[in-house]
Simulated assay, not measured.
Amino acid sequence: MTESTPRKHATQAANQRGEPRSEQAYSYIIEAIKEGTLPPGTRIREVDLSERIGLSRTPVREALNRLQLEGLVANDPIRGTIITELDHSMISELYAMREMLEGTAAGFAAQHASEVEIAFLREISDRDARLKETQDLVKNNKLFHSTLYRCAHNRYLLKMLHSLHESMMLLGRSTLAKPNRAEAARSEHQAIIDALEARDPEAAEKLARNHIREAYKIRLEAFFESYDD
Rank of each mutant, 00 (worst) to 15 (best):
D126N: 12
Y216V: 07
A110P: 03
R21N: 12
R57A: 14
P179V: 10
L171K: 04
G103R: 01
D87P: 01
S4L: 13
T84G: 03
I124R: 02
P77A: 06
E214W: 06
Y227V: 06
L86Y: 03
F224Q: 12
E70S: 07
K132S: 09
R57M: 14
I218W: 06
H145C: 06
I124Q: 02
H112S: 13
E221M: 08
V47Q: 15
A74R: 03
S22E: 15
L72E: 00
D128Q: 07
Q24F: 03
I83Q: 01
K206V: 10
G41A: 06
E102M: 12
H145K: 08
R43Y: 05
I193N: 00
R150Y: 10
N210G: 10
K206D: 11
S187G: 11
L67T: 02
P39K: 04
K178F: 15
E166W: 05
S167I: 12
P77T: 05
E188Q: 15
V60Y: 00
C151E: 02
E166K: 12
A96Q: 13
E85I: 09
F144M: 08
H145E: 11
Y149L: 09
I193M: 04
D229C: 07
A14L: 08
L207H: 05
T5R: 14
L220P: 00
I91S: 03
M90E: 15
K34D: 11
K159E: 15
T134G: 03
T2K: 13
I212D: 00
A113L: 08
E62H: 06
M1K: 10
G36W: 04
L157S: 09
R150F: 09
A195Y: 01
Q12E: 14
I118M: 06
T175P: 02
C151M: 07
S89Y: 07
A109D: 04
A74Q: 05
V73C: 03
V116N: 06
I91Q: 04
D87T: 05
Y216M: 11
S92R: 07
E85Y: 02
E85W: 00
L131I: 05
R21I: 03
A14W: 04
H9T: 15
V60S: 01
H153N: 12
D136H: 13
A13Q: 13
R127S: 09
E99M: 14
K34E: 15
Q135K: 10
F120N: 08
E197V: 14
L143K: 13
E197P: 02
E183N: 11
A182F: 01
L86W: 02
L220N: 12
R45Y: 15
V47P: 04
I53G: 00
Q12F: 08
E19S: 10
R43N: 11
I83H: 00
T11E: 11
M169G: 03
T147I: 10
L157I: 12
F223H: 12
N141D: 15
N140V: 05
Q24S: 11
L55D: 01
K206Y: 10
G36H: 06
T84A: 07
R155T: 14
K159N: 14
V60C: 04
R43P: 06
A177F: 07
E197S: 11
P179I: 09
S56F: 03
E31D: 15
G71N: 04
I124P: 01
H165V: 07
D194S: 11
E102D: 13
L94P: 00
L176D: 02
L161C: 14
I212E: 02
E51N: 09
T175Q: 10
T84I: 04
D228G: 15
Y227L: 07
A195F: 02
